[in-house]
Amino acid sequence: MRNILKIFILLGMISSIIYANGINRSIVKIYTVSKKPNYLEPWNSTVQRSTGSGSIIAGNRILTNAHVVANETFMEVKKYGDTKRYQAEVEFVSHDVDLALLKVKDKTFFKDTTPLEFDGLPNIQDKVTVYGYPMGGNTISVSTGIVSRIEHNRYVHSGQHFLSIQIDAAINPGNSGGPAISDGKIAGVVMQQIPGAQNIGYMVPVPIIKHFLKDIEDGKYDGFPQLGIYTEL
């Protein structure tokens, strides 16, 4: 009986390792060289290097944040378990909801990878796992937390208000653009945190992501409609 129990425990451990490796192979580290324009002194525009995270989705595309690739002049991506960097470029971008789709010129990049699927809108206290490449190391980082709030909030990149999900998983610079996974599927894209606060991070929810992906099916991005009405409190 004990031997049978040990076998079941071992099989469970093996399944967990296979599951984790499957997710890891869908996570991408993004290296960008950007040049933010200085409209007052154009000759003083500075070149910056930064990193972010992304996830491989259907169609040999990489989903990430718009602010990760904003003003980029050169970009490379690296997948889990591979030391080679591949040149990439922005295919579509939505600055209003802080999302971007990247494409890689060398299609061999996607060999041995599995595109992640999308989940629905999670419930409060649902468990989520954040994958990415934050500061503090070079290997993939995994942190877990729960959904704390689901409400309209300000997206820092655009200053506009859209539906967002607050989570208490650890989020640090470099996590931006990486996925929050629930039940093996993308529950959101990590986008921002509150500086100075602990365990307060936000992600773009799946309904917003699907709206973005649906919008670009005709080859161009139209954005989210606005009434053009503003109020003062």
Rank of each mutant, 00 (worst) to 15 (best):
I4F: 11
I4C: 07
L5I: 13
L5Q: 14
I7D: 15
F8I: 13
F8H: 12
L11E: 14
M13E: 07
I14R: 11
I18K: 00
I23S: 07
Y31P: 04
Y31M: 03
T32N: 04
V33L: 06
K35G: 01
K35T: 06
K36W: 05
P37G: 03
N44R: 14
S45Y: 02
S50L: 01
T51H: 12
I56A: 11
I56M: 11
N60L: 11
L63N: 08
L63A: 09
V69D: 11
N71K: 07
F74Q: 06
F74N: 10
F74M: 09
Y80V: 05
G81P: 12
Q87D: 06
E89W: 12
E89Q: 13
E91T: 05
E91P: 00
E91R: 08
V93F: 01
D96K: 06
D96A: 11
D98H: 03
L99R: 08
L99C: 06
L99H: 04
L101M: 03
V104N: 07
K105C: 02
D106T: 09
K107A: 14
T108K: 15
F109W: 14
D112G: 04
T113M: 12
P115R: 12
P115W: 13
L116N: 06
D119Y: 14
G120T: 15
N123F: 13
N123A: 13
D126L: 10
K127Y: 09
K127L: 05
V128Y: 07
Y131S: 10
G132P: 14
M135Q: 15
G137C: 09
T139A: 15
I146G: 06
V147W: 13
V147G: 04
S148H: 02
Y155L: 14
V156L: 14
H157N: 15
S158P: 07
H161A: 04
L163Q: 11
S164C: 00
I165W: 01
Q166A: 07
I167W: 03
D168E: 07
N172V: 03
S176T: 13
G178Q: 08
P179H: 14
A180Q: 12
S182P: 00
S182K: 15
G184Q: 03
I186S: 07
V189A: 11
V189L: 13
Q193F: 09
Q193L: 06
I194S: 09
I194W: 05
P195E: 10
P195A: 13
Q198F: 01
Q198C: 00
N199M: 09
G201R: 08
G201Y: 11
Y202Q: 04
V206C: 03
P207T: 10
I208W: 00
I208C: 01
I209F: 08
K210C: 02
H211I: 03
F212P: 04
F212Y: 08
F212I: 04
L213Q: 09
L213T: 03
I216H: 07
E217I: 00
E217F: 01
D218C: 04
D222A: 04
F224D: 03
L227M: 09
L227H: 06
I229S: 02
L233V: 08
